[in-house]
């Protein structure tokens, strides 16, 4: 499964939607993913890709990990996978 498909699967589970309902331009807010679901999604992403995601719930926008949209999350995870697997 590609990084994109896996992340969509994770977000879909948190949003209580089917993966096919999720588009790359969706935002977490538009999908109804709240702060608790976001923390759970990040945990699932870390487990799935065996990476460490820099994220502090006190200031979600502080790190380089861009959570503005599904697309930005996929790009950020791809970068972390590349950086942390080398």
């Amino acid at each position: 499964m590609s990084v994109q498909d896996k992340i969509i699967e994770i977000i879909a589970e948190q949003a209580l939607l089917e993966p096919s309902d999720i588009s790359l331009d969706d935002t977490l807010e538009s999908l109804g993913v709240d702060s608790l679901a976001l923390v759970e999604s990040i945990f699932a992403i870390e487990e799935a890709f065996d990476i460490s995601v820099p994220f502090n719930a006190n200031d979600p926008t502080a790190s380089d990990f861009d959570i503005t949209s599904v697309k930005s999350i996929i790009r950020a995870v791809e970068k972390l996978v590349a950086d942390q697997k080398t």
């Binding site: 990040i42 719930a57 006190n58």
Partner: peptide, 20 residues
């Protein structure tokens, strides 16, 4: 740690620079 509300560097209540 799992909740991601803990600070790695200190407790700074009410300060704009607080991070957990």
């Amino acid at each position: 740690e799992g909740l991601r509300v803990m600070s790695k560097d200190g407790c700074r209540p009410f300060s704009a620079t607080r991070n957990g």
